[in-house]
């Protein structure tokens, strides 16, 4: 049965409502920005892993590329930051187009290759030889265009866009065809589905979202080093968030990211290595004992999860 678009609108309204009220009632804006970025990343990974089965360990490559794409259009082309965030998303799409051949790889190989690709993007952008363009390892300063209020709403816009795409995947026949490709690409082809087209759309959308999140993040923190926007934790955290909540649904990654990022903020920020330990154990335990995530618990008691 296809799901009702109303459920999608309800989730969107809820997300918008929560972050709009938090903006006025909650003083720690950088926490909210980080949370929204992680929600968007978890959802972006969900679009790819949950709906097409490709596990992008190197997803942070698109986030970092988006951050730099946005920053460089601001610094060199003097674009309006909101347009520059979109440019950041598009620069991640360009990286995605370059990496399209990776889609020929299956399962684990795709995961490893995407990780190597993210590392390569980092090595290129942070290379001292490119200092005149990217500032190399010395970091980027966007202080001149810093605008906390519009920045905040832009990040929320990115999150809502991402959630809307996930909801579209969840209720549309296109989303269904993606899951058909994930389950069995030959069968999908002989059911008339254009496998290549479906995978490309999902892949490039996922890249675009990673880049948008990176762009909005860059604008909001306004000063950053290459290793802070290409940090592997920016892949690991959202993967754990998405898998913990449950991929292939809209609310799974949101719940997962909300709960675990809250936990991280409560105990992890001061002691990142203890948190890394906890995360590692969580990944192992999840995959071995609860591969369907939190939402699979709801499914067991026959609650339908959107």
């Amino acid at each position: 049965m296809l799901k009702s678009p109303l459920a999608g609108l309800a989730v969107l309204a809820l997300v918008a409502g929560i972050f709009a009220t938090s903006f006025f009632t909650f003083s720690n804006e950088s926490l909210l920005i980080n949370l929204m970025a992680f929600l968007a990343l978890a959802q972006g990974i969900n679009l790819l892993y949950g709906f097409t089965g490709y596990m992008p360990f190197g997803y942070v490559g698109f986030f970092g590329t988006g951050a730099y794409g946005c920053a460089l259009t601001i610094l060199f082309l003097h674009w309006n930051p909101i347009a520059a965030v979109v440019a950041g998303g598009l620069s991640a799409v360009v990286l995605g187009v370059i990496l399209v051949p990776l889609l020929r790889l299956e399962g684990a190989y795709f995961g490893i290759a995407s990780l190597a690709a993210a590392q390569a993007a980092y090595e290129i952008i942070s290379n001292p030889n490119l200092t005149s363009i990217t500032q190399g390892p010395y970091g980027i300063n966007l202080g001149a265009v810093y605008a906390p209020t519009t920045g905040y709403w832009t990040m929320l816009g990115v999150l809502l866009f991402t959630t809307a795409i996930a909801a579209y995947f969840r209720i549309s026949r296109f989303g269904l065809s993606l899951m058909a490709i994930r389950d069995n690409s030959n069968s999908a082809a002989t059911a008339g589905v254009n496998v290549l087209r479906g995978r490309l759309i999902a892949w490039l959308l996922s890249c675009f979202i990673g880049g948008l999140a990176g762009g909005a993040f860059a604008w909001n923190i306004s000063f950053f080093y290459p290793q802070s926007v290409f940090a592997l934790t920016l892949s690991i955290f959202p993967i754990v968030f998405a898998v913990f909540g449950g991929v292939g649904t809209v609310i799974g990654p949101l719940i997962g990211a909300g709960l675990l990022y809250g936990l991280y903020d409560a105990v992890g920020v001061a002691n990142p290595e203890y948190f890394q330990l906890l995360y590692g154990l969580l990944i192992v335990a999840l995959l071995l004992f609860m591969p369907g995530g939190l939402v699979s618990l709801a499914k067991k008691v026959r609650i339908h999860v959107f």
Partner: peptide
């Protein structure tokens, strides 16, 4: 036999009917 394992029987049919022309 190669159905889409995670999709329901009905959804299997919907995919084919929608994309099969």
């Amino acid at each position: 036999p190669s159905p889409f394992h995670k999709l329901t029987v009905w959804e299997n049919m919907i995919v084919a009917a929608t994309y099969g022309g």
